[in-house]
Design a protein around this nucleic acid. Structure first.
Lengths: 343, 343
DNA sequence: CTCCGTTTAGCACACGTGTGCGCTTAAGCA
DNA sequence: TGCTTAAGCGCACACGTGTGCTAAACGGAG
């Protein structure tokens, strides 16, 4: 079908071996022959078959990327970071969405194994560690991003959610809020836990108590989750004057819900998000949030993975940081303000 | 490294061909042998090498997906539709972002050719037709989604932008608007042109003239583009009372800009978007837009491509629709209303 | 008991590429 | 001229899988 190395060889009047060496720049072939063969190969539009090559070399030049959901502004930012670096380095990307469905996770792992991906980046907080083990058992290196099963994996990139959540909470406290609520999302596991812990930590540090009724957790992320989550807080006899949300999508839903209820943000209630997705700069009012370096996280994960690949499997991976924790920064916009004095 | 078909054969005490036939369910092998071999293969955790297989069969079980930008809510919706169907059908996805950069487009095409993808879905309005020809020249089928170079490709899925834009415009006219502006995005080519044409068509049908100053086009999409685009309209001596935006992202930027300028939406000016991305239900006010069936578009493109693959290349592709035009529906929310009587 | 048909499994080769090793040719030197 | 050496290139094989053809085993019929 396509033009092979043998076709090029025939055209150049040499054997395919010589072509192979010429294209890879082997010193065994004279410079002029190399030049000539390369020219002919280019003219014929020769493209090596990765399939055949990977059969010999055991390298597919493909990285697997597993996300929960492609259609999520947070992940697509991270994936873009991965893609940029991978493409520069000559790697292609298999992207698959697990949808947090175990059957689908299994299917993804099997397919990626069959394709002999060189490495995997798991960018899904809830991906089962058992499935991950399938990769490592076969010598396929894995880097995880913000995964809940921290200890199960050797190489990982994390965002310092605890620190971030503390900064957000402290910001609200410094504005004068005393009764602050937290709206969480349990399926993300550790990530949610860290953010909740940061919230609690800072509240206690300020000598404030956290009313159990002021911590509400959902199993639905996304803006619609924010709408339903808000109802809980509105029903409270004593409403909080500020809300810390697990992520921006929830916060966006909360703000929308408050507007529908005729409650002004931030005059009557302050709302803070987390992640800084593109849209959070365009809500009304613009959302105060914590800017997570999403693109950079993706790039760092890729860099770590490529580093693992360049070493021989047996060599000591000394010098590579196995776990990196990245920090973001607080982004104060207009959805947070001092509480009204009347309360 | 991994367990091969020969390892299984040795374990089962047969030759590798027998294993190959047993796994593919060939009638040449007795039922009991087949069962036994399958059990052993499963126990050993055997996973066939797609690389080796595709060498023989010339099928890689991989589809290439090319988008302009992964980090775009419109595309990620479409890609999710593609991914769902592809995974069901046992295909994996190579996803690459062109970033509207010709050098990067070339690199993507070459890489995908090297991996011998079975088919390609181009979901980037501006992808160069010259690059596309590279695929078809080598017999790799292509399906394009909303591409600007309609005629260059044989198989394509389109959204009826002309119809959609007419519906949006008519909606505004019926509300009583007479002076309506259009904010476009030229790099998307045909898509933008269709939406502009639909706008003009409906204006003329209502006997309204389109002031050239009321048509403004950008080379930057995204919400920030909306902010800068709005400035043009605010500087006009006679401002339009309604704005039709090329997409939701622009509209979101426009709404934000209007709020910053202290102009009320929709009381003083109505704003409409296009695409119905998730976020447009959560702007303030919620955005009137045209709901494009993004997920379905992706699924249809995949279905078309899989259909092409199931036929032999020489067979007549009779019965397959080469071009499908899908329709969406108008979604009236709260960012549009009758113009104030004072104007 | 032999012959033939049927079922089952093995042999050999091919796909496109990379690599160790050996062969040919020319040049250098005595 | 004959020998050594190096340069340049080809031969053969391997990677893991699929397929056409062939060989063996078995059973039934004459």
């Amino acid at each position: 079908m396509a033009v092979t190395i043998k076709d090029v060889a025939k055209e150049a009047g040499v054997v395919h071996t010589t072509v192979s060496r010429a294209l890879s720049g082997s010193p065994l072939i004279s410079l002029e022959t190399t030049e000539r063969i390369r020219r002919i190969a280019a003219e014929m539009g020769y493209r090596p078959s990765v399939a055949a090559r990977s059969l010999k070399t055991n390298r597919s030049q493909v990285l697997g990327v597993i996300v929960s959901n492609i259609n999520d502004p947070y992940f697509s930012n991270v994936v873009q970071g991965i893609e940029n670096l991978a493409q520069e380095s000559g790697y292609s990307l298999f992207i698959a969405a697990s949808q947090r469905d175990p059957a689908r996770e299994l299917s993804i792992v099997q397919t990626m194994m069959e394709h002999r991906v060189d490495g995997v980046i798991i960018c899904s907080s809830s991906f089962s560690a058992k499935q991950g083990r399938n990769f490592t058992d076969y010598g396929v290196p894995i880097v995880v991003i913000n995964n809940q099963a921290a200890e199960e994996y050797r190489y990982s990139i994390y965002h310092d959610d605890l620190d971030g959540s503390r900064q957000v909470t402290r910001h609200l406290i410094e504005l004068g809020h005393r009764r602050i609520g937290y709206l969480g999302y349990t399926p993300s596991g550790r990530t949610n836990l860290d953010r909740l812990t940061g919230f609690r930590y800072e509240m206690e540090a300020a000598g404030l108590t956290v009313d159990p009724a002021c911590v509400h957790e959902l199993t639905d992320d996304g803006a619609f989750g924010g709408l339903t989550g808000l109802e809980h807080f509105l029903q409270l006899a004593e409403r909080p004057t500020a809300l810390v949300c697990y992520n921006d999508m929830l916060a966006i839903g909360v703000i929308r819900g408050l507007q529908q209820a005729g409650i002004r943000v931030p005059q009557e209630i302050s709302v803070a998000g987390f992640d800084n997705i593109t849209f959070s700069a365009f809500t009304n009012p613009p959302l105060t949030t914590f800017d997570q370096p999403k693109h950079f996280i993706g790039a760092e994960a890729t860099r770590l993975l490529l580093g693992l690949l360049s070493k021989t499997p047996t060599a000591e991976t000394h010098g590579l940081e196995n776990v990196r924790i990245l920090k973001g920064k607080l982004l104060v916009r207009e959805s947070t303000a001092a509480p009204s004095t009347s309360s």
